[in-house]
């Protein structure tokens, strides 16, 4: 997939940092204001998709390779599971909020609510990497129309 015109590329360069900050804000303050890990992850994945559409598939894959996206996906799920298992170790039950039990934070502070911000970050990583992977795979897939009006499937090679 080739990139778009210079107008789209300039606008993308200007707004990309704001989109990234909004996604991080939704994720990190998910336990205080509306938002959360899922919404923040979707916004960050939308930023990747915007960059891919504006600058082309090769440009995006050079900066954020598919292998790194797969690793971040796994790391997000792993952090979520580790936090749940630590709850079993320290609090006696799976998924218990052990940090809030031992270090109760001040309500409405950024560092409060125990394990909930950790879980938000894990879900943000997971959703952003997953949606980017799905997008990259589906954008590389092409349906080729043959002469007898049936379709053939082809996947673009990387690099």
């Amino acid at each position: 997939m080739k990139g778009m015109t210079i107008i789209v590329q300039t606008i993308t360069r200007l707004v990309k940092i704001f989109i990234l900050l909004y996604g991080l804000y939704l994720t990190l303050t998910g336990h205080l204001t509306p938002g959360g890990g899922f919404a923040g992850g979707v916004v960050i994945a939308c930023l990747y998709i915007l960059l891919t559409l504006a600058y082309g598939r090769q440009w995006a894959l050079r900066r954020f390779p598919r292998r790194l996206a797969g690793s971040l996906d796994s790391v997000g799920g792993f952090i979520f599971l580790i936090v749940a298992c630590l709850g079993f170790g320290f609090g006696g039950m799976f998924f218990v909020n052990f940090l809030e039990r031992f270090f109760p934070g001040r309500p409405f502070a950024l560092l409060s609510a125990g394990t909930i911000p950790l879980n938000n970050i894990a879900i943000c990583l997971k959703v952003a990497a997953s949606l980017f992977l799905v997008f990259i795979v589906m954008a590389g897939a092409r349906l080729l129309e043959k002469k007898d009006r049936t379709y053939d499937y082809k996947q673009e090679e990387e690099e």
Partner: peptide
């Protein structure tokens, strides 16, 4: 019980953590 000011996050990540694990 959870310390989270946003009740939606408190429910999906603390009370209903199993559900979110299933979604992941």
């Amino acid at each position: 019980e959870t310390g989270a000011a946003n009740i939606v996050t408190a429910v999906i990540l603390d009370y209903r953590g199993y559900d979110t694990l299933g979604e992941a």
